[in-house]
């Protein structure tokens, strides 16, 4: 009995010993888990699955998306931060988990700027300023004037504290001094529904969420908060061309636990880059109202810079709101 157990342990140990160097040399040798800290079907999930499928082909191993929702995405990201930095656990966080979270969750178990090995931004989704169909103002200039005069009578809808529409709305309203009543919904769907139904007055949300309603004319779009027009909404002007100083994009970013070896980081970035340059994915991005990171925005340095600048921009606004 003792003998067999000992040989079994020895065999397992031998297996482990021989397996380890092989892993380091020809990563990846087994499926990679990509943690998405939100429920399946959301904007982060969709984009992750899109690029993960392409990356799987480049890497020759399946990337399995694992949805670990909870606490505005911070539970999944906490788990990613605590995982082994062996390249078999990566994660895709968003603007909320990677820059707003420290201001919203005092007991956060990770620091977006230091707890991860950054890989790259996966996509930017510009925010669009939208209102119910019947709101008077015809263009952005009129809207800003109208809000200035009437904002206290109006209702701003958002998808819950910590959601993208909450953060972007906060920044928008704070920047221009608007004080609407905030109506909280659980998720974007119900909020949009009430915007279409005219129960609430305006929102600032990801283009991805509002494109169908804008193109079908059930809600009004004033501007895309982005330097260039986006392909899915060619007729909607940008804040930049209208001379309004409000640029705001939601974004998703791929990260790995801190301490990921450089060669694995490069391999993942290379696979992601290939996916982002694929015409089919570029086309999908356009349909979604998203843009891929280009030039300096792509890669670890660009992501690190983005995280730091977003934390610096968002934290004071949210902290001020919490008194």
């Amino acid at each position: 009995m003792k003998f067999t157990r000992r040989t079994a342990i020895a065999a397992i140990a031998a297996l482990g010993v021989t397996a380890v160097p092989a892993v380091a040399q020809q990563y990846p040798t087994k499926p990679i888990t990509a943690i998405v800290p939100f429920a399946a079907g959301g904007p982060t999930d969709v984009v992750t699955r899109l690029v993960a499928e392409h990356m799987s082909r480049t890497l020759g191993q399946q990337i399995v998306v694992e949805n670990i929702g909870g606490a505005g995405g911070t539970i999944g990201m906490s788990r990613a931060a605590a995982a082994a930095p062996d390249g078999y656990t990566i994660a895709v966080g968003n603007m909320g988990t990677q820059s707003a979270a420290p201001a919203l969750y005092p007991n956060l178990k990770y620091d977006p700027a230091t707890s991860f090995t950054q890989i790259s931004v996966v996509n930017f989704t510009p925010q669009t300023i939208v209102s119910k169909k019947g709101l008077e103002p015809k263009d952005l200039k009129e809207l800003l004037a109208y809000l200035k005069a009437n904002s206290e009578k109006l209702n701003y809808g958002h998808a819950g504290v910590g959601s993208i529409s909450y953060v972007s709305g906060f920044v928008f309203n704070a920047q221009f001094g608007f004080k609407p009543a905030l109506v909280a919904y659980k998720g974007t769907g119900p909020a949009l529904n009430d915007l279409v139904g005219g129960q609430i007055d305006y929102m600032v949300d990801q283009s991805l969420n509002v494109i169908p309603q804008i193109t079908s004319g059930t809600i009004k779009a004033y501007a895309v908060a982005h330097p260039e027009r986006i392909a899915a909404l060619p007729d909607v002007p940008t804040t930049k061309e209208l001379g309004v100083d409000f640029i705001f994009s939601a974004w998703n970013a791929m990260v790995a636990p801190k301490g990921l070896p450089k060669d694995i980081q490069d391999k993942l970035l290379d696979a992601l880059s290939k996916a982002l340059d694929d015409p089919a994915i570029i086309k999908r991005y356009e349909d979604l109202g998203s843009t891929a990171p280009k030039g300096a925005d792509r890669g670890p340095a660009g992501l690190q810079k983005l995280v730091e600048s977003e934390v610096a921009r968002i934290t004071p606004v949210l902290k001020a709101a919490a008194k």
Binding site: A40, G41, V46, L50, G189, N193, P212, T215, T218, R284
Partner: peptide, 24 residues
């Protein structure tokens, strides 16, 4: 409307967008 009434429908929208369809 392109608006999901529940979590499963939200996932269906996700599936549609992955397949290049903008629901609505």
């Amino acid at each position: 409307l392109g608006i999901p009434p529940n979590a499963v429908m939200a996932l269906m929208i996700g599936a549609m967008t992955i397949h290049g369809i903008v629901p609505g």
